[in-house]
Amino acid sequence: MAVIDVNRGAKRAREARAQLGLDPAAPLPCLLGVVEERAERPVVVAPLAPGLAGACVPFGTGRLLFVNGVQAPVRQRFTLAHELGHAWCGHDGTVAVDTFATLGGGTTTPYEVQANAFAAEFLIPKAALAELADGAPSLDEITLVAAHFGTSALMTLFRYRQLRLISSDACDGLKARIDEGEHFAAAERLGLAAFDDRLATLDPLPYLSPVLRGTRLAAVLEGAAPAEPALAKAISRLLGG
């Protein structure tokens, strides 16, 4: 992973928070609202083809962001932040759709590294986590921070590691416990409520941003109209058609 691409993505995320009038360190309660209303990017949340997390595809003069709506809300939040990162960083529309492996860090492609770094910084700003951290975190602390920022426990742990706030050995130990699902018991014991993002309440799917309703795209997604060739190909791949 090229450090220059990580730094570039994180820098763009800080710029985005500033330009969108967001607190530089506060959690984002409803990411969907931020993307639709402040960033003015249209979003489609739908059951995507197996293995796909989302995509940022050309749409008119801008970009259309897709999110796999059958995933857990915390995963949808990271996907949406990642796709916003592609749009905000000005990546061209030829980037591939994003798989779960891509968003999990299993890539060295510069655009994907930048988008992952953008999402991590946009959701859990370095300034905020550095202020919260006080020595190596426990599983309870990881769970609390994840609930505070609306991220998964695993993504939160990796954020600690990315910022060198935890050693590799300690990170590996906590990852094993998270893989076993111990963070769920910790969240219940700590009385933590699910993060209140509108992504968790969308029903039925597909969901289209208000700006898209009544448009030709809406008709395309409903199977009532054909799409332009490039968009049709992207939609077919995303929806598994």
Score class of each variant (00 low, 15 high):
I235H: 00
T201E: 10
F122T: 09
R77W: 07
G241Q: 14
E182V: 03
T79C: 11
A128Q: 09
D203E: 14
T109Q: 13
K175T: 13
G9S: 08
C30H: 15
E222M: 08
I178E: 01
L129E: 01
E36S: 11
A130C: 13
L202I: 09
F184H: 14
L20S: 07
R177A: 10
L208A: 02
R8M: 04
A49G: 05
G173D: 09
V97K: 12
V35G: 08
Q19N: 15
Y111H: 14
G21A: 08
T201G: 06
Q114T: 08
L139W: 02
S138Q: 07
A186F: 06
A2K: 15
G104Q: 10
I124W: 06
A227H: 00
P229M: 00
T201Y: 10
A230F: 03
A119S: 09
P206Q: 02
A170E: 15
G223I: 08
Q19E: 15
D140E: 14
G54P: 02
A119Y: 04
R161M: 12
I235L: 00
P58T: 11
A46E: 07
T99C: 02
G135Y: 05
M155F: 15
G191K: 10
L28I: 15
A39T: 03
F184Q: 13
A128F: 13
G54F: 05
A193Q: 14
F122Y: 12
P206M: 03
V220H: 01
A187Y: 09
T143F: 04
T215M: 08
P226H: 05
V220M: 03
K175F: 07
L22W: 06
E15K: 09
V67H: 00
A147T: 01
G33T: 13
A219P: 07
G105N: 03
A224G: 11
Q76V: 08
N7M: 14
T143E: 05
Q71D: 15
G240R: 06
D169E: 14
L80G: 05
D140S: 13
A230G: 04
R198M: 08
V97H: 15
E83N: 12
A115V: 07
C89Y: 01
E222I: 09
G181H: 08
P137E: 05
L192Y: 00
A186N: 01
V211A: 13
L132V: 12
V97S: 12
P137D: 05
G62T: 09
N68V: 00
I124C: 10
R216E: 14
I142A: 02
T102C: 11
V34S: 03
L48D: 04
Q19W: 13
A176M: 13
L129S: 04
D169P: 03
N116C: 10
C89D: 11
A227C: 01
I178A: 00
L103T: 14
P42H: 11
E121H: 02
L80C: 12
R8A: 12
A81P: 00
R213P: 01
C171L: 10
D197K: 10
S236F: 00
T108V: 13
F184S: 12
Y111Q: 15
E15Y: 11
G135T: 08
P110R: 05
L208H: 04
G51F: 04
I178G: 02
E15M: 10
A26D: 12
S167V: 10
I4K: 13
V113Q: 09
Y160S: 07
A176F: 11
F158A: 09
Y160T: 01
